[in-house]
Design a protein around this nucleic acid. Structure first.
Length: 935
RNA sequence: GCCCGGGUGGUGGAAUAGGUAGACACGCAGGACUUAAAAUCCUGUAGUUAUUGUGGCUGUGCGGGUUCGAUUCCCGCCCCGGGUACCA
């Protein structure tokens, strides 16, 4: 009987579905294992061959863990709020929920064809009201919490209010926006509105006026991680800095814990490093410089040791003090400069970092130690939202200050010896010792930093401090397709909705664009007001500012829903709580998380932040959400290009292009014949504008240029998994994607080798068949057959554990080749192999398992252990002479003492041959590997 | 610029507490079976050289070093991929 993969796969996919083979329980006695994929955003393009890579890997691992006896949670869902669906809605007027639903159905269909062992009963979407109800709930908890820096944890806002009532904000150490000190009396005498303004400085979800990334094209603000190269990550539209009142998340309160937590999780080093860089902890000092006119300016520096090298000061143009300190004769120039900076940022400051700009304010500060007058400049190389927005410039030891000094002809004063000439180049390394530095002279940099901080604190002009690059995350979006923020505004005070009234449902609106007044789309909703008495959403006309108030018109960002979804899978149907406490206690956190590295500073950071917050408030029991994480590499496409002579209809074959002025156009890879040759007929039919194309051939053929790049619909290099499944079957596709190379590496898709994996599966199938019918033998195995099996078990189990799936596929091939050669069809050898291969190729395994007479699914069978008895290791006959030494390799069981090995070696006949007539000087035994015998 | 990852046959890739480099697979060449094809099976396949039936030499991006021994460790370069961008 032939290996009819199409029927087999269809049958078993249906079987798993009807039997709910992979459904997990919320709690059991068994040890848990939680394998999670980053859930997909269902885009309109459907899945391409690259998407399933991570899912296949996680599925193999999940199935393997089940076979090892773990109780495995392997869920899937959809990250269904997001920009593309909304952009599409704006263009077509179609409700994003509709397009999203269509896309999800397509995804589900494609996913089901690959035979994943997902527990579909736990599926949900982030746009389900029953899900986002809890996203809104978490938001309210964040709103009602503050971060106690003494206790290093978040606490309910009531405890902060209590503290204020007792002692004002004098004694409390809370993470927050800097606020003026107040006493208990002052607090008690404040109005409700005033109190709320103060509290906003401490809440973990808070409203504040801040410089944000504004993207006019998308009509919304964006978080830092959503901006790449001053363009929006989605769509690539320009992003500008703008002052706006926005909701933010006080992630900075968790900076230290987010950094420290990296030590305890098993993540790729590269990813940890990028998070750690994003958090950007630096040690330094805050130093106050007095102005000649009585004001003072605080700066932050990591190099207080270079304080004597300060020759000028620089402020960010947006610094609030600028107006106060600018002298009359410089006012015009300063205002012009600030204006210019604003304009420049609108013109997108063409990344001309080297181009120095700045403006003198006319003001001077006094050096705190020497009393020297230091001119005060403005420049856009100083950022308003890092440190204090002001710096002491040390041109001799900072390249940016150096550039600035050169441009404006300022003094460059060397204070750290050991570099080259500081007049031509800054000496930035922390090597050397201090000179021209009074009390720091002759000290090494590291010592000098400490000493300088000591002196600064002694003098009362500043203190040592730790600074983080991490910024609070802007949380509101002026968009429609997201979770509504469950807040209404009562006389300007933000009030959260009662928890039991959640979810606050996303209203229907007529158009998905901002209002004519430029307000967010939700302002278009007819019923978007909260009636405090009735506790429900009512029509806007009823708004009276007494009982009925306007709801927040912002929505949450894409990362809100994905910051806690892994918790919901533990107990997805719960209507009382975001996750049942027992279920949370049982499943704890994700043991293995597989997904792309592009989420390093977005999702993976926010999810850790929320998780730590939930831990602080005792809603979850673990500190970190994802114990082990693997980034799967991308599968790249091999794009094809045709070269068109600019402004003509003439196309030139790739080999003839040379230096001609051509434009390269992506063409569909379906238009290629074999290799790089273009199918001219198909090409001419592909697009009407190519119908009359004039093609310059090369030896009668037209060749395309190829390039490996990201697989994407717009590059016409997409390979659809459905086609591969049809032709070779899902099992082949699964194994081939693993066989292609290591999971973490990016690699171009290449169909060439797939036949090898397919042939392997057919060969495996044939092991169980003779002359067309299913046939196995009951005979006991020979030693050789046992060895093949047990070697395979040992190697494959080890490789799966290391997530080295490519080498485990090879191990299968070796075993099957060996058994084919041995003509082995013994049940006792073959049956364990079926269990072993099931995680990789589940359909064929099920089909064979059934034919072997089992009634249950092979997915419920336990994976066999290798028996070391069958793997007795022995001396390999491989003695070689070199450099006067006899070298050979031997394998021993690890626990044999070395003296024993020596004796055995000497007994070995070949050794005796070599020793013939010579005396033995020394035996060097390198454990487990090689033995050198000196004659 | 800075940080991370990686350069191994015609191709995808194995092998790193240093120990037969090229597992496994594709492709290619030859053969068996067949009227033929498909399918299947077998043999060969880093390069080079020779006294071509068991050898020699060269080979893991380049140049050095440590070592009896280096794809693996160290130093200095080159190239490719990814991340990041004035963070004081």
């Amino acid at each position: 009987m032939e290996y009819d993969f199409n029927n087999i796969e269809r049958y078993w996919q249906k079987y798993w579905k009807t039997h709910q083979t992979f459904q997990a329980d919320d709690i059991t006695e068994k040890i848990k294992y939680y394998v999670l994929d980053m859930f997909p955003y269902p885009s309109g393009a459907g899945l391409h061959i690259g998407h399933p890579l991570g899912y296949i890997a996680s599925d193999i691992y999940a199935r393997h863990k089940r076979a090892e006896g773990y109780h495995v949670l392997h869920p899937i869902g959809f990250d269904s709020f997001g920009l593309p669906a909304e952009q599409y809605a704006i263009q077509t007027g179609q409700h994003p929920a509709k397009t999203t639903e269509i896309n999800i159905q397509r995804y589900k269909e494609q996913l089901s064809k690959l035979g994943f062992s997902f527990d579909w009963s736990r599926e949900f979407r982030t746009s389900d009201p029953s899900y986002y109800r809890w996203t809104q709930w978490i938001f309210i908890q964040l709103f009602n919490s503050w971060y106690d820096q003494e206790a290093q944890r978040a606490r309910p806002i009531e405890s902060l209010i209590e503290a204020f009532e007792k002692n004002g904000n004098q004694t409390i150490k809370a993470a927050g926006t800097t606020t003026n000190p107040f006493t208990a009396e002052e607090w008690k005498n404040s109005t409700k509105a005033k109190k709320e303004i103060i509290l906003q400085n401490y809440r973990l979800a808070f409203r504040s006026k801040a410089t944000v990334n504004w993207c006019p094209e998308l009509g919304t603000v964006l978080a830092n991680d959503e901006v790449k190269d001053r363009k929006s990550e989605r769509g690539g539209y320009p992003v500008y800095q703008k002052e706006m009142v926005q909701w933010s998340m006080r992630i900075t309160a968790y900076a230290e814990r987010l950094l420290k937590g990296l030590d305890e999780i098993d993540w790729p080093e590269a990813l940890k490093e990028s998070q750690s860089y994003w958090i950007g902890k630096s040690f330094g000092a805050r130093i106050r410089f007095e102005l000649t006119k009585g004001n003072s300016i605080e700066i932050f520096t990591t190099r207080p040791d270079t304080i004597f090298g300060t020759t000028f000061m620089v402020l960010a143009p947006e610094h609030p003090i600028v107006n106060q300190i600018t002298t009359a004769e410089h006012r015009l120039a300063v205002e012009a400069y600030i204006e210019e900076i604003k304009k420049r940022s609108e013109l997108e400051r063409l990344s001309d970092v080297k181009n120095v700009s700045g403006q003198f304010t006319g003001a001077y500060t006094l050096h705190p130690f020497t009393g020297k007058k230091l001119p005060l400049y403005l420049s856009d190389y100083v950022l308003a939202n890092y440190g204090t927005g002001a710096i002491m410039a040390v041109p001799a030891h900072d390249s940016r200050d150096h550039r600035f000094a050169k441009r404006f002809g300022l003094e460059i004063l060397e204070v750290i010896s050991g570099g080259s000439d500081v007049q031509t180049e800054a000496h930035e390394t922390k090597e050397g010792y201090c000179i021209h530095s009074d009390f720091l002279n002759k000290l090494e940099v590291k010592v000098a930093i400490k000493k300088a901080i000591e002196k600064i604190e002694e003098k009362g002009i500043g203190q040592g401090m730790i600074n983080y690059r991490l910024r609070d995350a802007v949380f509101s979006r002026q968009r429609y397709w997201g979770e509504p923020i469950p807040i209404y505004y009562k006389k300007g005070i933000a009030v959260p909705l009662p928890e039991q009234k959640l979810p606050l449902l996303l209203p229907d609106i007529d158009k998905y664009i901002p209002t004519e007044e430029g307000e967010p789309p939700l302002r278009r909703a007819k019923a978007w007001a909260w009636d405090e008495k009735q506790q429900k959403v009512v029509n806007n006309e009823l708004m009276d500012e007494i009982q009925v108030f306007l709801l927040d018109t912002n929505t949450m960002p894409g990362w809100a829903g994905s910051s806690w979804y892994f918790l919901r899978y533990m107990n997805p149907k719960n209507e009382e709580r975001f996750v049942n406490q027992q279920a949370e206690n049982y499943w704890q956190n994700v043991d293995l998380y597989i997904g792309g590295a592009e989420h390093a500073t977005g999702h993976l950071l926010y999810a850790r932040f929320w998780h730590k917050f939930l831990k602080d408030r005792d809603w979850v029991s673990t500190e970190e959400p994802f114990k082990k994480l693997i980034n799967q590499g991308m599968i790249l496409g091999n794009s094809a290009f045709v070269a068109r002579v600019n402004g003509t209809k003439k196309f030139i074959s790739a080999g003839l292009v040379k230096n001609q002025d051509v434009q390269e156009l992506h063409i569909d890879i379906q238009l290629l014949k074999h290799g790089d040759e273009l199918d001219v007929e198909k090409f001419k039919k592909w697009r009407p504008e190519f119908a009359e194309a004039e093609l310059i051939l090369e030896g009668g053929k037209f060749f395309c240029r190829r390039k490996v790049e990201k697989m994407s619909k717009s590059k016409y290099n997409v390979i659809n998994p459905d086609e591969i499944c049809e032709k070779y079957g899902a099992d082949t596709l699964r194994m081939y994607e693993m066989f292609l190379g290591s999971l973490e590496q990016s690699k171009p898709w290449n169909t060439q080798g797939i036949i090898g994996v397919h042939q392997f599966l057919r060969k495996f199938w044939r092991l169980f068949h003779s002359t067309g019918v299913f046939h196995t033998d009951q005979e006991p195995p020979t030693a050789e057959e046992s060895k093949v099996l047990h070697q395979a078990i040992k190697k494959i189990r080890k490789d799966i554990e290391n997530l080295s799936f490519n080498t485990s596929v090879s191990a299968f091939m070796i075993a099957v080749n060996a058994l084919t050669a041995l003509k082995c069809c013994k049940r006792i050898i073959l049956e364990p192999l079926v269990i072993l291969i099931a995680p990789f190729a589940p359909h064929i395994a099920e089909a064979l398992w059934q034919r072997l007479g089992h009634e249950d699914s092979v997915s419920l069978a336990r994976i066999p252990n290798h028996d070391p008895q069958h793997l007795v290791e022995e001396i390999i006959e491989y003695p070689v002479m070199f450099n006067g030494k006899l070298r050979f390799k031997a394998h021993f069981q690890a626990n044999i003492p070395t003296t024993e090995i020596e004796q055995q070696i000497l007994k070995y006949p070949k050794i005796q041959d070599y020793l013939n007539g010579k005396t033995l000087k020394k035996i060097i035994i390198i454990p487990k590997k090689v033995i050198n015998i000196v004659l």
